[in-house]
């Protein structure tokens, strides 16, 4: 039987160039825009997009960032080094959201996505229904040399998978952990490293947290306990600077909760989605 997920391509102008962007969606109701992690793609959200308990209330949308998955890099890509920045990331998210006509979407992102939702809440909170940051922190301290992720004498797919494999909880199902790694093994050369430019260097958002108003744009932060890249303590530290934010530390999950063990992750996500539905109902009430 076919899954309910629909996929398609659209042209979105980003950075002065037209980009061919791949989008998947399913469900109806409150728009929920989902962002994949560095060096991966929309397939990380397969569990959520196949969860009727969610899609009966939410229009779930996810897209591959330029250079990722089935989205193309821009014309002339072979002449440039890919580096994600806060500005280009925000432009891509808002560009896709506007092109799809999403009205006050809730944006849920993981890792780099969990980072950028903080900037979205700070600078565009009035346009959003809220943000959910998975494995979210305002910055991370580098702990390995990212040069290893892109050099001709090391297989990029295998080393990228090796770098992230331990970020998952050992209790997560083996097949789902390896599915998650397969996506990493398929990334383009230098793309994971280019995303890490935002995650580990340019995208330090510590100074942006004070601009977040959770009364205008609520913030939920959920972090798996086995993540040593964005640790629970890093998330708690971020939340301390966002008054009104809500933190959940998720047991027996790691850096890829929606992909490594969706069923377990859903037990933590469901109460958040219930709150979002409650707020939407309150706004709609006369």
């Amino acid at each position: 039987m076919m899954e309910p997920i629909r996929g398609g391509y659209m042209a979105v102008p980003l950075g002065g160039k037209l980009h061919r962007i791949y989008v998947e969606e399913t469900g109806s109701g409150i728009p929920l825009l989902c962002l994949h992690t560095a060096g991966s793609d929309t397939r990380q959200w397969r569990g959520l997009l196949n969860d009727a308990r969610v899609t009966q209330h939410f229009r779930c949308v996810t897209f591959d960032l330029p250079w990722h998955g089935k989205s193309s890099p821009p014309d002339g890509w072979w002449k440039e080094e890919y580096k994600l920045t806060t500005a280009s990331y925000v432009e891509a998210i808002l560009g896709v959201s506007d092109a799809l006509g999403l009205d006050r979407p809730v944006v849920m992102g993981c890792s780099i996505g969990g980072r950028v939702v903080l900037e979205l809440a700070a600078s565009h909170g009035a346009r959003l229904g809220g943000v959910i940051g998975l494995q979210s922190s305002s910055h991370v301290d580098p702990y390995y040399d990212t040069e290893w992720a892109h050099r001709p004498d090391v297989h990029g797919g295998e080393v990228c998978a090796g770098i992230v494999s331990g970020l998952m909880a050992p209790q997560s199902p083996e097949n789902e952990r390896w599915e998650t790694l397969w996506h990493y093994m398929q990334g383009g050369p230098g793309v994971f490293r280019g995303d890490l430019h935002f995650y580990k260097a340019e995208g330090d958002l510590r100074a942006r947290l004070e601009a977040i108003d959770t009364a205008r744009c609520p913030v939920w932060l959920l972090t798996g306990e086995y993540d040593y890249s964005c640790s629970p303590e890093a998330t708690r530290e971020t939340a301390r600077h966002i008054p009104g934010s809500d933190v959940t530390i998720m047991s027996r999950l790691g850096h890829f909760p929606m992909s490594e063990n969706y069923e377990h992750f859903a037990t933590f996500l469901r109460p958040v989605l219930d709150q979002i539905r409650g707020r939407a109902a309150d706004r709609a009430a006369p």
């Binding site: 702990y143 770098i163 331990g166």
Partner: peptide, 11 residues
Amino acid sequence: PGRHDLMALLR
């Protein structure tokens, strides 16, 4: 957590 993987030990 933190001791489940070689990279975690490195971190």
